[in-house]
Design a binder for these strands. Sequence first.
DNA 1: GTCTATATCATGATAGAC
DNA 2: GTCTATCATGATATAGAC
Lengths: 195, 195
Amino acid sequence: MTTISPQREVTRDLVLDAALALFTEKGYFNTSVHDIGRKAHVSIGSIYHHFGDKAGLARALYSALTAHMAQRIGTLERQHGSCHDQARAVVAELFDLTESAPPVMNFMLYARHREFLPDEPPVCSSRPFAMMREMVRRGMASGEIRRMDPLIASTCLFGGPLRMITARLDALLPRPLPDYLDDTWTCAWRAVATS
Amino acid sequence: MTTISPQREVTRDLVLDAALALFTEKGYFNTSVHDIGRKAHVSIGSIYHHFGDKAGLARALYSALTAHMAQRIGTLERQHGSCHDQARAVVAELFDLTESAPPVMNFMLYARHREFLPDEPPVCSSRPFAMMREMVRRGMASGEIRRMDPLIASTCLFGGPLRMITARLDALLPRPLPDYLDDTWTCAWRAVATS
DNA sequence: GTCTATATCATGATAGAC
DNA sequence: GTCTATCATGATATAGAC
């Protein structure tokens, strides 16, 4: 969200950051545009000037975050050879991100976008999720993963880890997620691995 | 939700059914109390008489559904001996329920209750989820499930199946969930089983 | 591009007759 | 217990000066 930041972009980023924090803390519908402006020290007029309406703001946030995540996954794919290593790196990254930036994780995979962005496809159809499914498909082709419906395989592989994330966001887990990574990943991989 | 239904309860059930349908279709915040009254053919006054306020209505719905589900799980526990059979029966039940009553499933495990019921604990703390964790704990004691943090085990066991449910609710899966039960369960159980 | 002030409107909730 | 009519609030969004 923060790049070269010509003055032009500064306001936008201020607003997006405030919106992310408030959406996570109180939810989209419990957050008014006034709240966002107050928190970002930006006037309502500016917000509407930049984003058109409240949904436009949410949309901008959503695509910025998923684009960034897709890019991260792409990098991890290039850094690791096997499907096993790639998928594990993705889970590790998601766990780290949950601790370092809970609101990002919360908004990206826990918020019910359908309710405030009716035209946006569901999260599981977003770019990052598609990349993860594709990763599984390749692992099946290479023989690392048992042959089955790829949709089932990818849901079973990532389902556990993803629920660990939501459990952590709900404060159900006492310790930071990376502490649970080894055990979680062992279970996840056993679920679908050939060996 | 429908028992003996003295006239006293008839209005309540009418309202709860309409609310469930609308909350699922448009979300809690996009549904007005007027909408609910219109759909249930009941006046606003009656709704407030019975439920106090909009959140009270949601609370009544939430506890009715989780109570019912907890009861179903209890029955399944009694009908099956091993942890494996119990847990599989629970997943089968959840899959069936997702097809026969999508709104029930949707409201129970997909809605973001925190946003409209701030005082209610998160879903994963509800009775049914607690029962499922306890089931896993027993399976670990009896040696069916590998020794590990019980919270991780239960998340890994049920994480895949639960994500299958949300995928189906998001219309990502073309066929009815029970068609996927065998493969999903095989993966889920392998994730945590000792053998 | 940013601001303040304001229009408009829908919603949650209540009053009070029957 | 159910209804209709109404209130009061607070939200989204706009207008128009700077």
